[in-house]
Design a protein around this nucleic acid. Structure first.
Lengths: 158, 158
DNA sequence: TCTAACCTTTACGTCAACGTGAAGGTTGTG
DNA sequence: CACAACCTTCACGTTGACGTAAAGGTTAGA
């Protein structure tokens, strides 16, 4: 697999606009308070601050927040659990810095391998939850079967 | 007060012992406070009260509580959501009475059909949640694939 | 009948996950 | 440069889901 590297860099990258907290909140359907609270709890840190200390979020922050919201709303995890799933934020920031400032394959490999392990742990937790949900569905379906058997029985001895 | 053991009577009927709140709590791994709170919130009502107003729970109450606990712990539903899933408790009590006091197939059919509908709604809600969980797992697996592709890429161009 | 171990209701305390000001600084558009 | 519309950091309020203690009644065994 050979990736073609353009010899002259015409910067095809998008403008990479940083969003302020209210824009992020509106896009994700969160409140600014929640976002700040998640930061307090160590779930994320904005990519940057403006000169006047405004929080500025990059696309990966948005992704992270979207993931947090789904964990909270869809899976029903507590923020503490989510924090464990997202793992050490400080390590993430350090890794982001290192990845941005190095082209050394060895270092990049370290970052990516750590990320791989984190995602694997996430999947394990999600699958655990999905498993117990599946068990509940199976239970409910069994009850449904019993109820329908009762109805059929009534129908038989009419 | 000697308990008669009539050798002549095979006693096919189960003892149908009613449990007090602490016995129920111990068996289910809940606190008595939680059980009383669920009652306050309208999630269940004990089958009976003793002369001295002790709460007395029958097997179907235990089943219901076990279900509540699983919805709370495994699926992460709020008590309000659980209340919706369990639907109108008063209707359940009325139906229990009616089912106990009638052998009329038509009436029994009404009770069972209502139960069927309730269980079907429960299953729908659970499957909805399971669906979004599955989507999250798929997402995570996609990210995992991307990360592994990145690692492979590093391995290739060395 | 007495007593320990239950139970009752009432009521205030706690913790997570925010909501809601207050008091003031920042941005960018006219 | 004025000013509305953002943003900042406190800091206290609220809601859900209980914990915990108080003051007293109930049960069952010795």
């Amino acid at each position: 697999m050979t990736v073609v590297r353009p010899t002259t860099e015409p910067d095809p990258a998008p403008p990479e606009r940083l969003l302020r907290i209210n824009e992020v909140a509106a896009e994700l359907g969160l409140t600014t308070r929640s976002i700040r609270y998640y930061e307090e709890m160590g779930l994320l840190a904005p990519a940057a601050r403006s000169d006047g200390a405004y929080r500025l979020y990059d696309p990966s922050d948005i992704e992270r927040l979207r993931f947090i919201k789904r964990l909270r709303d869809d899976a029903g995890f507590s923020l503490a659990q989510i924090g464990q799933m997202l793992e050490d934020e400080a390590a993430r920031v350090r890794n982001r810095e290192r990845l941005a400032h190095t082209t050394d394959p060895a270092e990049r490999r370290v970052y990516l391998t750590e990320a791989e392990e984190r995602v694997e742990r996430q999947i394990a937790l999600l699958q655990d939850k999905a498993g117990s949900l599946a068990a509940m569905i199976a239970d409910a379906e069994a009850r449904l079967t019993r109820i329908r058997a009762g109805i059929a029985e009534l129908g038989d001895d009419r």
